[in-house]
């Protein structure tokens, strides 16, 4: 039963597709950003699960421990989380500006206004 050991990828793919669906199907811009957030988190989980080692411990040096988790993905994802917050802040600021310009945060309504003007 080798395939059951890939369940971490299945969780990642499910979350990724949920986020993608939110981005595709929802007209509301804030929901799209939340979808992007879910997508992003699924990538974090993918990297961290790639760095996990069976029966290892957290990568903090200690005399009594011989097996550590891979520290490299942890460092990469720490950077990625912070960058994600920065992009999220920018996206939300854009949404606030769009709401000021159009009075709506709904994709369809914004397109309708653009068509009329």
């Amino acid at each position: 039963m080798n395939w059951i050991l890939h369940y971490n990828y299945w969780v990642v793919i499910f979350l990724m597709m949920t986020g993608l669906y939110l981005v595709f199907a929802r007209a509301n811009l804030i929901r799209k950003v939340i979808g992007l957030n879910i997508f992003q988190t699924s990538v974090f989980i993918l990297f961290i699960s790639a760095g996990a080692v069976r029966q290892a411990s957290a990568p903090i040096l200690s005399e009594s421990i011989t097996s550590y988790a891979n520290p490299l993905p942890h460092a990469l994802i720490l950077t990625a989380i912070v960058v994600g917050v920065a992009t999220m802040a920018l996206a939300l600021a854009l949404i606030v500006r769009i709401h000021e310009a159009y009075g709506a945060i709904d994709d369809d309504l914004i397109h309708r206004q653009n068509g009329e003007s």
Partner: peptide
């Protein structure tokens, strides 16, 4: 679209190393 993409990705995981494998290329 989402279901088809997800199915393709799950098919691709057959080639990925198992979870927690200490001999995975990443380590």
């Amino acid at each position: 679209v989402v279901v088809i993409t997800g199915a393709a990705l799950i098919y691709a995981t057959r080639d990925m190393p198992a979870f927690g494998d200490p001999y995975a290329p990443a380590h």
